[in-house]
Design a protein around this nucleic acid. Structure first.
Length: 724
DNA sequence: TAAAGTGAGGTTTTT
DNA sequence: CCTCACTTTA
């Protein structure tokens, strides 16, 4: 492979970044300037030109999806499989190191990962055992506090807890929580990183091994790193390593969860002899859009300074629509998308962005009324679904782990008559004998210390898991998971559930079985960790919660928050709810220093657009039940007037629809439907009518379909058929 | 043990 | 106003 192949289609600055020989390289890359591309090509450069073993390159991304895409991209450039090439999230990488060095990390070999939900459950348990008033000290707050401390690499002993009562109380919970995690060998997300950092710090031989091993470190989205991640990178690079950090201070929108974009500046100061390369040529948007983005972001003080430019032509003016209300806003968006289609555009080119998820409902309804397909980002991910987590809990127990969290989760699912009392007995026994809940329940059964009914139920549960444990040796992963969902009775349980809900859950469980099958097919690379496939699958589920919904192949409108739009691009973009109080959000207006981040979010939103951008703000908006009147977003004034084409609505006669009549019961007037009736929709499948408004040709019904929340449909257009 | 009732809270989200 | 988590009730 020669240089030209790797340099192909790269501009001057990109080439410089790809081939830099500086040991500490900072690439400040504006939106749409090809930053991911630079990382991919730089790895290719290292492998092909400098002939560095892919094994000694570590590439860090923020999401698993980004990691997969990165690997694919690189493999495409070098036209080879990279095999044992470390490319993953901070958490994934830390996890891998901890599995290898569990002993030095003070963990049990079979330590489990807690996702946020599991973590909250443990914290609740801790609070309960400490007899803490949960109204005064909400477990959620404690969780937030603990995570914050871990993100900053602080143990309870390192917190100055005399400062105030709050700190004192939180630190107490943190201390207890740590104890429980230690006893049960549980590791939450923050702990994965923290423990790895400690591992490296306190084991010089391990540290120097990895410092030598990872000759080159590359980090994407560096503005999103938090304190502990920064420390981890600095430590791992060591005195002789090489590091490339790519990021954009103007796109730092996760400050609220601990990301420190100052790390970019810190990098250039603390990493000796670092070189900074700016990527300012944008390949995505029209000049008009870039001008808007540039002028808006210029209002932020303390930037590292970057100005996007493009060779693209001017482009279409930005449309600003002043809607009457949120309903009108939605109508405008939908009709604009329809004219986009009429002009030959496609649905998946259109993205509707909003500041908060709650805004999606009205938009969804409007899209549905026109029967257009859409995909909405956000919501419960696959491995976070209750039924999936239940199945995984059984799998955890079946894998021989005496995981208390898993035990508590499923001992009474499906319901087998084990209630609070029995569980209390088991907990007490566990506390007294200092054993796991699993062992304790075995003891109670053996010593006949339970009521006959409870005894039978607990025995039933234990024997289900024991049987699964026996099978584990003879079955492959797919069949094991299949047995888990069958033998546990989960499938049967959800089959009995009424309506679409149960049906969906059964579907999901079946999908879990095939996911296990596919997981097994992934070739195991360099398997020195000697984990079993079951273990790996469990960890995979904890570290990568999967997609929100199975991807549909149909071309669809994309709906998402501004935050989740980061990194994506669309020819047609709508930024909705562009109002004071919504965007910038009220809380950011009130809290000092939060406006800059909102403005960066605005910058992110604008720069998602390639061709056409619409801003919509509404004169009145229904919020929390009452009508609000929000002035247009202050960011609107920051966009030069000459870039804007104001669309003022021809005042259409507003028909105030009667709100749901006080008592909606029985028949939907002048239609063939009634409340509670099961109906079938060609796209959404089967559902139940929950509510209605209007009558006859104007009637709309609220239908609850399986996975998604309920939808409002016009009876006239929805083409619903009754199900009997 | 599921269904109905109550009450707080309502920005953004990945791992 | 709507949703969710949690509690009370038949």
């Amino acid at each position: 492979m020669d240089v030209s192949k790797i340099f192909e289609n790269l501009n001057e600055a990109q080439r410089k970044a790809v081939s830099s020989e500086n040991a500490s390289l900072l690439v400040l890359a504006g939106a749409g300037s090809g930053k991911t591309r630079v990382i991919a090509h730089r790895v290719a450069w290292l492998v092909e030109i400098l002939e560095i073993n892919p094994q000694s390159i570590l590439t860090v991304t923020f999401t698993n999806k980004a990691a997969r895409e990165m690997r694919d991209r690189i493999e495409n450039i070098v036209e080879a499989q990279l095999g044992n090439f470390w490319c993953g999230t901070f958490h994934g990488i830390s996890h891998r190191l901890l599995r290898r060095h569990w002993e030095e990390s003070g963990l049990r070999k079979d330590f489990s990962i807690l996702d946020s939900e599991d973590q909250l459950r443990v914290i609740k348990r801790v609070c309960k055992s400490m007899l803490i008033d949960e109204d005064k000290w909400p477990p959620r707050q404690a969780q937030w506090y603990i995570n914050k401390q871990k993100d900053e690499a602080r143990r309870p002993s390192e917190i100055d807890s005399d400062k105030d009562y709050f700190n004192e109380q939180m630190t107490k919970i943190y201390t207890q929580y740590e104890e429980v995690c230690h006893r049960e060998s549980l590791v939450d997300f923050g702990e994965l990183l923290f423990r790895t950092l400690t591992l490296l710090k306190s084991n010089p031989d391990i540290l120097s091994h990895y410092q030598r091993h990872f000759n080159h470190i590359l980090v994407d989205e560096f503005q999103d790193t938090n304190e502990i991640q920064y420390q981890f990178l600095k430590l791992l690079k060591g005195p002789d390593g090489n590091i490339t950090a790519v990021g954009d201070d103007d796109q730092s929108v996760y400050g609220w969860r601990g990301a420190k974009s100052e790390n970019l500046i810190r990098f250039s100061k603390e990493f000796l002899g670092s070189e900074t390369i700016k990527l300012e040529q944008n390949y995505r948007s029209s000049q008009v859009i870039l001008d808007a983005a540039n002028t808006v972001i210029r209002n932020n003080p303390s930037r590292m300074g970057k100005e996007l430019w493009t060779e693209a032509k001017e482009g279409e003016a930005i449309s600003v629509y002043r809607a009457f209300n949120e309903e009108d806003e939605a109508k405008y968006v939908v009709s604009s998308i329809k004219s986009w289609l009429a002009q030959g555009g496609s649905l998946d080119e259109a993205a509707i962005l909003y500041r908060s998820n709650a805004q999606s409902r009205v938009l969804e309804a409007a899209i549905l009324r026109e029967d257009l397909p859409y995909r909405i980002y956000g919501g419960v991910r696959f491995y976070e679904r209750a039924e999936i987590k239940n199945a995984m809990a059984y799998l955890r127990l079946a894998s021989g782990n005496e995981d208390d969290a898993a035990f508590e989760r499923v001992i009474n699912i499906p319901t087998r008559g084990i209630g609070k009392k029995t569980l209390e007995l088991i907990r007490l026994e566990a506390k007294n004998s200092n054993l796991s809940l699993w062992k304790s329940s075995e003891n109670l059964v053996d010593t006949n210390s339970l009521s006959p009914k409870a005894l039978q139920s607990v025995q039933g549960f234990l024997s289900i898991v024991k049987n699964l444990r026996l099978e584990i040796k003879d079955l492959n992963l797919r069949n094991l998971v299949d047995h888990v969902v069958q033998m546990s009775g989960l499938i049967e349980f959800h089959k009995k559930e009424p309506g679409e809900k149960g049906r969906t859950r059964v579907d999901n469980l079946e999908e879990l079985v095939s996911a296990a099958g596919e997981f097994e097919m992934i070739p195991i690379e360099e398997d020195e960790e000697e984990s079993s496939p079951v273990r790996k699958f469990i960890d995979h589920a904890a570290l990568d919660a999967g997609e929100t919904q199975a991807l549909e192949h149909e071309s669809a409108i994309q709906l998402m928050t501004l935050h989740s739009s980061k990194g994506l691009e669309f020819p047609l973009v709508f930024i909705t709810g562009f109002e004071e109080g919504l965007f910038p959000h009220q809380r950011s207006i009130e809290e000092a220093g939060q406006l800059e981040e909102e403005r960066r979010l605005c910058y992110v939103g604008i720069t998602r657009s390639m061709k056409k951008l619409h801003f919509i703000h509404a004169e009145t908006r229904n919020l929390y039940g009452s009508e609000t009147y929000n002035p247009p977003s202050r960011f609107l004034e920051e966009i030069p007037k000459e870039l804007i084409n104001e669309i003022r609505a021809a005042r259409e006669k507003r028909t105030y629809q009667k709100k749901n009549s006080p008592v909606n019961s029985g028949q939907v007037p002048e239609t063939d439907f009634s409340l509670g009736q099961r109906v079938k929709h060609t796209k959404f499948g089967e559902g139940v009518i929950l509510n209605y408004e209007g009558q006859g040709a104007n009637a709309r019904v609220e239908v609850k379909f399986g996975k998604s929340s309920s939808k409002w449909l016009m009876v006239e257009f929805a083409n619903l058929s009754p199900v009997y």
